[in-house]
């Protein structure tokens, strides 16, 4: 168990490292919401998602939909580490003619399951995938990450009603509760109240975990897989800019075009991660 935990945490370091390098190459991007999903991506792609880079369309694969498409850069770093894309491609984020646009595109990027970025839509698609696989009697899982700000969108709550009604127990939804949306704190814009209780009332099994802990996330997924009669919502208690203290403290950290001070701090974060990765080898 300790080995798995350590390796997932080390995988998170790598994802964070390459996310920062990728965004650094581009010179701007959605730092805050990419970094807050690094740990959950590490646990999903490091342990749970059954998807083979050599057989990516196998109908029994697990599906992953990044409904909060703005987290694309973190997904791309993960897909690079899983062998779906090359390092050259990783650093082409948002360049002219790239196959890595800000928001994931299933027709451009190997390993991306669904095109997302227009908020609220990915969760409906994930629910449709889970419904379809259930109809076929398959035991594969559909994982979906939605943002806390994204849950402003009514379509999310339509999808939750649908998933709850059809008892899609192989749908595992993560809510990235990083407490900020573009214009400020979620509680000031549209107070989310209690996501766990809300999701329970929609027919989900729901819990809240430390979204910066790969161990806590992994345990929550293991528990989720024991549920047989309802979909699962795991609320991730996260911080926008997670894992980079300088960014965590920065007020406006949704989309950043780093100035000289930012660049220096981000370079230090990259070097620290690099050192940790070396120490762990």
């Amino acid at each position: 168990m300790v080995t798995v935990t350590n390796s997932l945490s080390a995988f998170a370091d790598k994802i964070r490292y390459y996310t920062l390098k990728e965004l650094g190459h581009t010179g701007f991007g959605h730092y805050g919401g990419s970094l807050s999903i690094v740990e959950v991506l590490a646990v999903l792609y490091g342990k749970h998602i059954n998807k083979n880079v050599h057989d990516p369309h196998n109908p029994d694969r697990d599906y992953f939909v990044l409904s909060k498409g703005h987290g694309g850069p973190a997904l791309y770093a993960t897909l690079f580490l899983k062998g779906f894309i090359s390092e050259d491609v990783l650093y082409s984020l948002n360049q002219n003619g790239t196959t890595l646009p800000s928001h994931p595109d299933r027709n451009l990027t190997p390993g991306v399951e669904m095109t997302t970025g227009s908020l609220g839509q990915g969760i409906s698609v994930a629910a449709g995938i889970a419904y379809s696989n259930k109809l076929d009697g398959r035991s594969n899982y559909t994982y979906c990450i939605v943002g806390d700000g994204e849950l402003n969108e009514g379509e999310c709550w339509e999808a939750f009603q649908f998933a709850g009604h059809h008892r899609l127990n192989h749908l595992i939804v993560f809510i990235d509760d990083n407490k900020k949306q573009l214009d400020g704190p979620t509680k000031d814009i549209i107070d989310p109240l209690d996501f766990v209780e809300k999701l329970k009332s929609f027919g989900f099994a729901s819990c809240r975990v430390d979204g910066s802990s790969t161990t806590a996330i992994d345990e929550a997924i293991e528990q989720a897989k024991l549920v047989t009669d309802k979909p699962i919502a795991i609320v991730l208690d996260t911080i926008k800019g997670q894992g980079v203290p300088y960014l965590e403290q920065k007020a406006d950290n949704h989309h950043i075009r780093p100035n000289e001070e930012d660049k220096k701090a981000l370079q230090e974060a990259i070097e620290q991660l690099e050192q940790r990765m070396k120490d762990g080898e």
Binding site: Q121, S124, G128, E155
Partner: peptide, 13 residues
Amino acid sequence: ANMMGVTAGLSLT
């Protein structure tokens, strides 16, 4: 809205 998303998921599978 959700119907169109679910439709996309059904088509995807």
